[in-house]
Each structure stands twice: as structure tokens, then as C-alpha cells.
Amino acid sequence: MAAPIVELCDVNKWFGAFHVLKDITLEVAKGEKVVVCGPSGSGKSTMIRCINRLEEHQSGRIVVDGVELADDIKAIDAVRRRVGMVFQSFNLFPHLTVLENLTLAPVRVAGMAPRDAEATAMALLERVRIPEQAGKFPGQLSGGQQQRVAIARALCLKPAVMLFDEPTSALDPEMVGEVLDVMSGLAAEGMTMICVTHEMGFARAVADTMVFMDEGRIVEIAPPARFFDHPANERTKRFLGKIIGH
């Protein structure tokens, strides 16, 4: 494998006295799809939020695309431009149209000409299959449509890595599929993806690597076939038994 595009090395983080991430070490190669799962409160979201510095880690190293995240605005900006993020609650900007949501960062951050940014945005909306909604406001879309717009928005700066923080957890069951389809398409195009999700069908089909976390630690890292059929760790077995059992 080539040099990792995301590298976490002995990362520790505390929320006050609470030790939320314990000695996290993880390497993600270019084009690799990593699915992170685990019980709530296990630190999954916190870990991926550290990768674009929405959370600050207190010890250890995080290197993204050759840039180490430290208390340095330039490094943080550089990493954020290379990393796209999709949130559980979409977080679209409700006062801007769909198209404006997509062109905001290219124009304001990357200095792209508005016309070029719009062309890129429209191409991305085609890709997530909602070009006809470009002029609407987020509040006029369904949850599934909003999340697809959010994915398109995260792709606007042509990121090297995409982070997904439980992207389908806030959706009605019937809308989960359309979002997962878009994510699978993205995976097929070779995007490097780190997804926190409990969609095990998606994980089995798309993931190269499964990561299981519990109480702030990475308990198990394995390819999906081995992870689902022969988990090594007791805790993983219990977790999988609970979520796949029904």
C-alpha cells in the first residue's frame, strides 16, 4: 500500500476529566474505505471530528495528506480544504439556496469565479441526482435530499478524504437507501472515505476495513469478511450479535 493519506498515531483526548480517545492509532490509505462502528459514547464521532480539527486532540499525532494538525491556523486550513465532512443533521445553511450552499466555499475559500463554481456545483448536483432542486432552499427538501446536497457540498472543494458522521441516522428509513446509494457511488469512484455508521449492509458491501471502537479505544481492525464472520474480540462479537441479530 502507498503512504497513508490519514494517519492517527497514539491520539489521546479528554473532555474535562473524561478520557474520550485512548491511544488511537489508525492508518487510512488513499482510496481506502473505512467504516467505524461501535456503541454510542465509544468515541467514533470524536475521532473523525479530530481529523478535520472540529475537535482538538491533546496528545499524539494526526497527519492528513502530509500535513500534521497542530495549533497552526495554516495547517488547519490546509487540512480542512482537503477533507470533506458530512454530518448526521445535514447542517445545510438554511438561508442559502441549494446552489448557494454549494458555491459558498469554492467562491469564498478557494477564490473560484462564481460562474465556474456554479458549473462545478451543478455537476455535483447531477452526481447526487437532484439538479432540479438547485434553486430551492434546504427547508423545502426532504431529509434524504438534504443529505445528498450536504454530500455534494462537501465534495465542492474536491477533497482527498470524505468523513461521514452517521449520515443516515437522522433519516426516515425509506430515505436511507438514496443516501447510501450516493455514498456507494462515491466509493466506486475511488474516494477515500471514513464513515461512522451502523448500516452494516453498506459496510459489508463497500468497506475495505472495519474499525470497532469501545470506551475510547480501537478494539478491532479487520477486513469486513473476517470482521462480520469471525470477529476476534469478545466485545465485537457481543456488539455484532446485538445489531445484526434482528
Binding site: 447542517n91 445553511f93 457540498r153
Partner: peptide, 20 residues
């Protein structure tokens, strides 16, 4: 979440205040 989404897109704190 609005601020977080804007941060993840690389907007500066001043831009986030003004635009979002």
C-alpha cells in the same frame, strides 16, 4: 452545527460570522 459545517468547509471565523 452551522458553525461546524462552515468550519469543515474551510471558512474563516470572520466569514462564518458574516456569511452563515
Amino acid at each position: 452545527g452551522q458553525t461546524e459545517a462552515a468550519l469543515s468547509l474551510g471558512l474563516s471565523p470572520g466569514q462564518i460570522l458574516r456569511l452563515v
